[in-house]
Amino acid sequence: MQYVIRRLGHAVVVIFGAVSLMFVILRLVPGDPAIVYAGPSATPEQIDVVRGELGLDQPLYVQYVSFLGDLVRGDLGESLRLGGSAVSAVADRLPATGLLALSAMGLAVLLSFPLGIAAARRARTAVDYSISTFSLLGQSLPNFWLGLVAILVFSRALGLTPSSGWGTWQHLILPAIVLSLPLLGVLVRLVRAGLIEVMGEPYILTARSKGLTGRVILYRHAMKNMLIPVITVAGLQLGQLLSGTVIVEVVFAWPGVGRLLIDAISNRDFAVVQAVVMLAAFTFVMLNLIVDLLYGYLDPRVRLEAK
């Protein structure tokens, strides 16, 4: 428990760092939100007025301090483009992204274990080679390319699924599959390699010498040990999934946080960008915390050290 509290403390520091970094980067890149906000026909005087209203004429450190002050009060600012608070803009889009990300994650986890186990049990056979090739492709082909090809093949040519937008479960199929493929590829390879390694351990020989069946040996004695390295690397890969959401949402016109972020960046909608970054940092830190807790649950040797 103490460990969890300490980790939550770390989380606050990480999120603070991410948001601060984003604050600086946003103000260093070219592009003035006042120009965008005032509109294309605005005179320089009007733009100056808008800049003053937004507080953008203040020195950077003054802006930063007032930003932090608002942040502590839970106010992430107003969206210049959408009106209303940046937080509610993100909250509106969150369910769509959550649905997409969780579907992709679930798909990757559900498929990777049977595939990885099959490849490991038939190592260096045709089964193994086809599964390994497939997972290597899934891992290395870029999301945006896969997305476009999937739309061309399954929506345009075969007409099986809608090409973009959302609303029905059919809309979810392509983006979820495309988003899951890189994670799936990594997980399959991890499960395969992990299982092959664990099955060579002396305690597996012990389990066999006890007369246990192959199934008990695989699912009891090997599985939990195999999960330790898989979970470790999978935790790092989840960050990849988060950034993948942005690309996939844009390709499939999925109305989620990722597309909101892209729109906000192109419109210099600082408050929304900052809110999304905060959410992403928070999600990433939480996922890593879950992975670490899981790790301690799986490996009693780690659990003891943490105490």
Partner: peptide, 24 residues
Amino acid sequence: MRSVRGERLALVFQDPLSALNPVY
């Protein structure tokens, strides 16, 4: 052989640490 192992023939290994499953 599985029905014989443990039941009628048993094996004790050299290194007890690696012969035991660390996570159980």
